[in-house]
Each structure stands twice: as structure tokens, then as C-alpha cells.
Write a protein that binds this DNA or RNA. Structure first.
Lengths: 243, 243
DNA sequence: ATAATCAATATGTACAAACATATTAATATT
DNA sequence: AATATTAATATGTTTGTACATATTGATTAT
């Protein structure tokens, strides 16, 4: 990385520093526990003040990507992929943040009739078809999550949309649907044969099941999402404070 | 709030400022959209530098509690009291709510040396002993959760306390320790032989692992809690709202 | 009256300079 | 050899200062 900072650029130095750090984080060596250069040195390398550098580091520490230790230095957090409850990062963003490149394969879109639970959640009759989207993500030889999403017919999705775009961007820009509320249920269970096959694991292996009920501004249901994560590949983090 | 900052206190000024701001945020007027005093003024009021004040504000902005606007000023975010619905119910309360009656059996208290992770979290050296409390809950013939709790030596627990009382009540009333912040990590994994035996299930059966890091008002670590739930016996629910 | 200009005001960015503190590692002391 | 002291080194805290930038509101020119 050395001197990736451009003092003439209109983008703020601490933002540039942040970006540079994100690249470092993505790199193999630093993700394996190697402590990054100390602040004074780094600041010198980047030719910015320590205060400015610290501004960048702080942000990443807050995001949980970096960990500081008194005399030891700063290192990349070793957590697996985690999700912060409060921020609304999309899946792809979350991953990019950590420098993990993942592919979307086994992408599949169909129309299906809802079961009781889904019809109930969407508040529609069981003969109304809904769009179902299935995805397997990870590296093809080592997938780590299987998603099944169902979208409320009210939205008007046809199934021909460009699903390579971030989902919530698509909904917001093309359909004026803004996801604002999400209720999640997280539990553990054994993989049934179907899921086991999708994730390339043995049946009954432990998986984390994450159900998401997504609502728009008017608290109307818009999406029902099931995510089956291979054990160990996903840690759900929640922070709560009482007054 | 005016001058709630004590320059002689050992607690850092920006932390004190943060606390003061949290109080402001909690107050009725500011939650109704009133913009708080501008930075220069506030800094003067608190008798700290603007930089230090900004450190505090930044944290709260990161947390999504405050919103800054260029010429307008800083205001409390609409969703401010957001993470409230997050359960600060104690375990027993939670269960009573669900109409489940459970027993506490295999209750066990010991002193142990912390491993790296624990020593690190508690910020103590590895030769400091900590109090460990183990519990199995459920019906004896069908347990559904195994807990292991570790308490920070700073609290002063002796191990002879009446642990039949609700834990947080005991800490609050007898030790003036008030749990305010909790960070949880939820993941799925296969039960190792020890856990499998405790829960009366086969090894490698799926369990939900819930790690809780509990902090007091000053963000000091007070408890580390591991809960292994038999698959299907526990569903973790989270609600989050944006904007 | 409307549009363009300018000033005021808030946050945003950036630096340099100290001193504090915790922890490890080296050294000296018992 | 075990313990206490000290030094080195990293992050942590805090201030003072300066200029940049975006936006609102008032002023001025069309």
C-alpha cells in the first residue's frame, strides 16, 4: 500500500486512509493476525498526521473490523462474517467490507404458491402466486449459505429484473419499496437432506437458520427470507443497552 | 446538564461528555427534534475542547443516536431509543413469559484460571482466578440449556452468595454492579462430548451457542456468559428499524 | 418579483504537540 | 533463581489552532 494517499485529491485524507486500511484488512497476511504498523509509522508512510490516521482507524474499530491492544498494536479482528443488528448493510456490502469475495451461484427464480405461514405473513390467499428467489453463496466448492426469498406480489416484481444489482437498491429505485423494519429469528437446527445437498455437508450437520421478516415504511410485509448458514460461517452479533 | 464534567475524575473527558450527551438524548425536548447547542458552545459549557467533544459526538453518530447536518446542527435521530425492544429480560422472566416452568439443576460454582480469550475480555492477567458458575436448566430428564458464566474479580463475588436469587438483582443490590450493555454473538455448532453429555444429546448434534459479553455503566466488563441451547429449544429474535 | 450574490453559521478536515497509561521486555536486586 | 525495578513502546487522551465547505438567510442586482 505504502503511499496510496493523494493530498491533491478532493476526497478527504481520512477517507482515503480508511480505504487504504480496508485494502490492508482484505489482504491475506493481515487477516492472519499480523499486527499492522504502528500509528506513528503508518501516519508517516501515508504522509498524514496521526490524528487523521486515527480518525480512519477509529471508524474501522467501531465497525468491528480492527482491534486495538495497549502495547501490542492494532490487528484485524478474527471474527467470521458477522452481522451488526443496528446497521443495515446488505449482504454484499458486509462481505466487501471484510475483503471476502463471494460468488452468487445456483441462482434461481420461480413462481410458487405460498404455504400457510407465508400466506398468513403476506396476508394473501393461498392461490396467489409469489416470486421465489433462491441463491447459494460462497465459493462453488465450498458454499456457506443457502437463501430462499419470497416477495410480496404487491411489489410487482416480474422475475426478469437484474438481480445482480443489490436487492434493496433495486427495490428502492425501481419499485419505490423501502425496507425499514426487519424482524429476525435465529435458531440452530440439523440440515435436512435438501439443505445438506445445497451446502455440500452431511445431513443433520448443524446449521444456523435465520428467518427475516421484512417490512416497508408502512409496516407492510414485503419479503420473507430464509437463510441457512453452515455452522461456523456466520456469527450473529447483537448489542443492546438499557437505560 | 450544563457542567457535568469533572476534570479531576480519572474517567476520560470524552467519556464523560458521551455520558452527558446520552442524558441529553434521553430527555424529552431533544428527542422531539430540537437541535442541540452547537459544538463550540457546548465545548465551552463543558469546559473541554471542541476536539474532545467531537470525539464523544462521533461515537454517538456512529451508533446512530445523533445526526449531524451541515449548517443546521446536530439532532437526535428519530429512531433513537431504537434498540429498546431488545430483551433485557432475565432468563427466568423470559421463560415465565413463555409459560415454561424450568428447574435449575446441576448447579456448580468454582474458581478457575481464565483462558486467553477470557483474560483478554476481562483485561486481567491469566493468573488471576475468576469465579465460574455452571448451570443446567430444563427438566432433569430433558435439559435444554447449559450455561457457563464467568465473573470479573473486580466485583468481589465470593462464591458463597445465594445464587437462587435473580442474578442481576444480586449484583445490583449487594455489589452495586449494574449491567447496562450486552454484546451477544449467536452461532450454530455441533455439540462436543462435554456439552452433549450435559444436554443428554448425541455428540455433534446441532446446538445454538450464545455468547454474552456483559458490561456495566462505565463499559467495564463484568460477565462472560456461554449458553449452549439444544437445537429447537431456543429462538433468538431481533427487531431492527432504520431511518 | 425573481434571480443572483454574499455573508453568517454550523459542521468538516487537518495538523502539531504534549502528556498519560498500560504492557512487554530487559535489567537490576534480593 | 525469583522478584522487583526500570525502560521502551504502543495506544489513549487532550488541547489549541486554522482553514474548508455546505447551507441558510439576507442583500443586492436584474
Amino acid at each position: 500500500m505504502k503511499n496510496s494517499i493523494d493530498h491533491k485529491s478532493p476526497v478527504p485524507l481520512h477517507i482515503q486512509a480508511e480505504t487504504a486500511l480496508r485494502e490492508l484488512i482484505a489482504s491475506e497476511e493481515y487477516r492472519n493476525g499480523k499486527t499492522l504498523p504502528n500509528e506513528v509509522e503508518m501516519a508517516k508512510m501515508m504522509a498524514i498526521s496521526r490524528t487523521t490516521l486515527r480518525q480512519a482507524i477509529n471508524k474501522l474499530v467501531f465497525e468491528g473490523l480492527l482491534v486495538r491492544k495497549k502495547r501490542k498494536g492494532t490487528t484485524v479482528a478474527d471474527n467470521a462474517v458477522s452481522s451488526r443488528s443496528n446497521n443495515w448493510l446488505s449482504f454484499s456490502q458486509e462481505m466487501k467490507l471484510r475483503g471476502i469475495t463471494i460468488k452468487n451461484f445456483e441462482f434461481h427464480v420461480t413462481w410458487v404458491f405460498p404455504d400457510d405461514a407465508l400466506a398468513n405473513f403476506f396476508d394473501i390467499s393461498k392461490d396467489r402466486q409469489v416470486l421465489k428467489m433462491e441463491r447459494v453463496r460462497g465459493r462453488p466448492e465450498e458454499p456457506f449459505v443457502y437463501f430462499a426469498s419470497y416477495f410480496h406480489p404487491r411489489i410487482g416484481l416480474t422475475g426478469d429484473e437484474d438481480f445482480k444489482r443489490p436487492l434493496y437498491e433495486l427495490l428502492e429505485q425501481d419499485y419505490s419499496v423501502i425496507a425499514t423494519l426487519s424482524k429476525e429469528e435465529i435458531s440452530a437446527k440439523g440440515a435436512d437432506p435438501f439443505i445438506a445437498e445445497k451446502l455440500r455437508i452431511a445431513a443433520d450437520s448443524p446449521v444456523l437458520l435465520r428467518k427475516r421478516f421484512v417490512f416497508d415504511q408502512g409496516d407492510r410485509p414485503i419479503e420473507y427470507n430464509l437463510g441457512y448458514y453452515k455452522a461456523g460461517s456466520f456469527v450473529y452479533t447483537v448489542e443492546s443497552r438499557r437505560e
